[in-house]
C-alpha cells in the first residue's frame, strides 16, 4: 500500500467557474520524491495545500499512512512544509525558528537544543543560529525554512516552489542540497514547481498538471522522452512538432517528407497509413555527412 494516496480529489473554490483540481488520483510510496509540475494556475499548489490541510477538498480522500487525514486540522497532521516566500518568523532568530515546532509541541529545552544543533549541521549553518532572518541571504533563509520543516520529524515533506524566489546560481546548489538531504533522511517528499528542469532533475516521479487535471505521471525519463499528450510534450523541454505518416505501427516505422524513420518502440493506438504528429527534441538531432547511414 502506498504511503500517501489521493483518490478522486476535487477542489472548487467558491465563486469559481471551473474546478481548481479535478479527478486527482495519485499514490506516493514511502521515501519517494514526487514533483507536481505545471504552469501557474494548473492546480499544483492547491493540491499541495490540500495535503497540508490549508485547503479542504470539495470531494475525494487523502490518506496518509493508512489514515484518512481529510478531517484532521493542519496543526495535527505532522507534515512539514516549505513555502515559496520562506515564511520565517522575523521576530525569532534562526535557532528559535527551527525549534518553533518542537517548542509548541511541548518538547523539553535540552531536547530542542539538541535537535536544532542537528538541523543547523544538516543545512551547514552552524554558525548562524543567533542571526535573525533579515540578516540572512535568500538561500540561507530557505535552508533555515527547510530545517524548520524537517525538525519536527514530519512523516511527509511538502515544498511549494521553494527555489523560485532565488537567483539561478543558488537555485542550482540548493536544489542538489534538497535532494541529498531528502535521500539522507529518506523522507517522503512532494515538490511543487513550474520549472521543468527542477522537476526532472530532482524527482523519482513527475506529475505534470494542466488546468486542474493530471496530464501524465511518470519517471523523468519517460516524461521527457515519451510524453503522452501534446501539452506534456510542449511544456517539458523544447521540441519540434512534425506531421508524419505512420508506415508500420508494430515496428514504429514512420515517414517524414518521403524518408522513413524508426521511433524505437511500437506505436500503439495508430494504424498504418494514418497521419500522426511526432515531437522531436532538438538535443537528439545529429547531423551526419551525406550518405552515412543512421
Amino acid at each position: 500500500m502506498a504511503f500517501l494516496e489521493l483518490t478522486n480529489v476535487r477542489k472548487v473554490f467558491p465563486n469559481a467557474q471551473t474546478p481548481a483540481v479535478e479527478d486527482f488520483n495519485l499514490n506516493v510510496n514511502a521515501g519517494e520524491f514526487v514533483s507536481f509540475l505545471g504552469p501557474s494556475g494548473c492546480g499544483k499548489t492547491t493540491t499541495l495545500r490540500m495535503i497540508a490541510g490549508f485547503e479542504t477538498a470539495t470531494s475525494g480522500s487523502i490518506v496518509m499512512d493508512g489514515r484518512d487525514i481529510t478531517p484532521i486540522r493542519p496543526n495535527q497532521r505532522n507534515i512539514g512544509m516549505v513555502f515559496q516566500s520562506y515564511a520565517l518568523f522575523p521576530n525569532m532568530n534562526v535557532a528559535d525558528n527551527i525549534g518553533f515546532g518542537l517548542k509548541v509541541g511541548g518538547k523539553s529545552k535540552p531536547e530542542i537544543k539538541e535537535r536544532v544543533g542537528e538541523m543547523l549541521a544538516l543545512i551547514k549553518l552552524e554558525e548562524l543560529g543567533n542571526r535573525y532572518p533579515y540578516q540572512l541571504s535568500g538561500g540561507q533563509q530557505q535552508r533555515v525554512a527547510l530545517a524548520r520543516a524537517i525538525a519536527i520529524r514530519p512523516q511527509l515533506l511538502l515544498l511549494d516552489e521553494p527555489l523560485s524566489a532565488l537567483d539561478a546560481k543558488i537555485r542550482l546548489s540548493l536544489r542538489n542540497e534538497i535532494r541529498s538531504i531528502q535521500r539522507q533522511l529518506g523522507i517522503t517528499t512532494v515538490y511543487v514547481t513550474h520549472d521543468q528542469e527542477e522537476a526532472l532533475s530532482l524527482s523519482d516521479r513527475v506529475v505534470v498538471m494542466n488546468r486542474g487535471l493530471i496530464e501524465q505521471v511518470g519517471p523523468p525519463f519517460e516524461i521527457y522522452n515519451f510524453p503522452t499528450t501534446e501539452f506534456v510534450a510542449s511544456f517539458v523541454g523544447t521540441l519540434n512538432l512534425l506531421k508524419v505518416k505512420v508506415i508500420d505501427p508494430a515496428t514504429g516505422a514512420i515517414q517524414v517528407d518521403g524518408q522513413t524513420f524508426f521511433t524505437g518502440r511500437p506505436l500503439v493506438n495508430h494504424a498504418a497509413g494514418e497521419t500522426a504528429q511526432i515531437a522531436l527534441r532538438p538535443g537528439i538531432v545529429q547531423s551526419r555527412q551525406h550518405g552515412a547511414r543512421r
Binding site: 497540508a52 496543526n75 512539514g80 512544509m81 513555502f83
Partner: peptide, 8 residues
Amino acid sequence: EAAENLGA
C-alpha cells in the same frame, strides 16, 4: 500557515 503547519 507555517506556524499551524509546525503544530501551533
